[in-house]
């Protein structure tokens, strides 16, 4: 007998419809690193290991930023800029190094205690939800640094089959950014707000995303799931009827896009022949090709600040 269809109401962070099988994503870095004392003679070695991890983190972020730039996810490029800048923050550099000298413990333990201290201070001072969301960027970055400290385990992000719906407690901005938009994913998380950078990046990539969902149901099921951004519902084990309705909706949405694309050769004019200028807002030279593709005749606004993004490799370490 077929099990019953279940609908769970959440909060839409990014619109659209996704249909797929659940993929439970656990951030392995949530584990607490071991803590042990080090000898005075080992201090310099630990600091060198830390600097190397910061450098590798910078390299990771720059390569992620390059692919985001090509993909045209400009909001994500700006967010990664902030991560790169945080790697140069005195709190991340000199402060952690001083603490390693002072505490004489392994770098992972010292780094984690510095980050916990920052997090606690942040929460004590900032009750503002909008700014509390920014803490996720710091946590995202600190996970990356811890991962690079480990050295041997360079975990490839999201080696996930196509048509998966990713289910996670929380998704960090860079986890979301590293996912290719064209592989039709959907996201369901327990935590996440509309103002978060994770949501902003998902919207930019057009990935349907519903948050504030109780995830316990997904632990024991491998059935199909629908993410419906328009209504904010996650539909587990959909009936054949529901499934076909959503498949049609999805097809309709993509055929509308295709239909519109087929009309891009038309002149920008009203039915009675009044012609208007159709200009595009661009962020990089590559956007000009895209503009031509969609029938744009010129550039309205050139966001020149993006030209400087990700090009800040001078005087680093």
């Amino acid at each position: 007998m077929r099990e019953e269809e279940i609908r769970i109401k959440g909060v839409t962070l990014s619109d659209g419809i996704a249909i797929g099988t659940p993929y439970l994503f656990h951030s392995s870095q949530e584990e607490v690193p071991p803590q042990f004392p080090i000898a005075i003679g080992e201090v310099d070695q630990e600091i060198a290991r830390y600097r190397k991890a910061l450098f590798s983190s910078k390299e990771d972020l720059e390569s992620l930023q390059n692919s985001l730039e090509k993909e045209g996810s400009l909001d994500a490029v700006t967010i990664i800029d902030a991560h790169i800048e945080m790697l140069k923050d005195p709190l991340m550099t000199t402060h952690v190094e001083e603490k390693i000298r002072q505490m004489k413990q392994n770098t992972e333990a010292v780094f984690r205690s510095v980050m916990t201290e920052y997090e606690n201070k942040f929460f004590a001072k900032t009750s503002d939800m909008f700014f509390q969301e920014r803490l996720n960027d710091v946590l995202d970055l600190s996970k990356r640094i811890l991962r690079n400290l480990d050295g041997k385990q360079k975990k490839p992000f999201f080696e996930i089959p196509d048509h998966s719906i990713i289910i996670a407690k929380i998704l960090t901005p860079t986890e979301t950014a590293s996912l290719q938009a064209d592989r039709s994913f959907g996201f369901i998380t327990e935590k996440g707000g509309t103002n978060s950078h994770t949501a902003l990046i998902a919207r930019g990539k057009g990935i349907p995303f519903i948050s504030q969902v109780d995830l316990s149901i997904f632990e024991r099921m491998k059935k199909q799931i629908i993410v419906d951004g328009a209504s904010g519902f996650v539909i587990v084990n959909p009936s054949l009827k529901t499934l076909s309705t959503y498949q049609k909706m999805k097809e309709k949405a993509s055929s509308e896009v295709i239909a519109l694309q087929q009309e891009t050769y038309l002149q920008a004019e009203t039915k009675d022949g009044f012609s208007v200028n159709l200009f595009a807002n661009i962020g990089s030279a590559c956007d000009v090709d895209l503009m031509h593709q969609f029938g744009g005749e010129g550039v309205g606004l050139f966001r020149t600040e993006y030209l400087f993004s990700g090009r800040d490799s001078l005087f680093f370490f």
Partner: peptide, 11 residues
């Protein structure tokens, strides 16, 4: 002010 993380903390 040279610490971006501290600036964010000001909210």
């Amino acid at each position: 002010a040279k610490s971006i993380m501290s600036i964010l903390m000001l909210a």
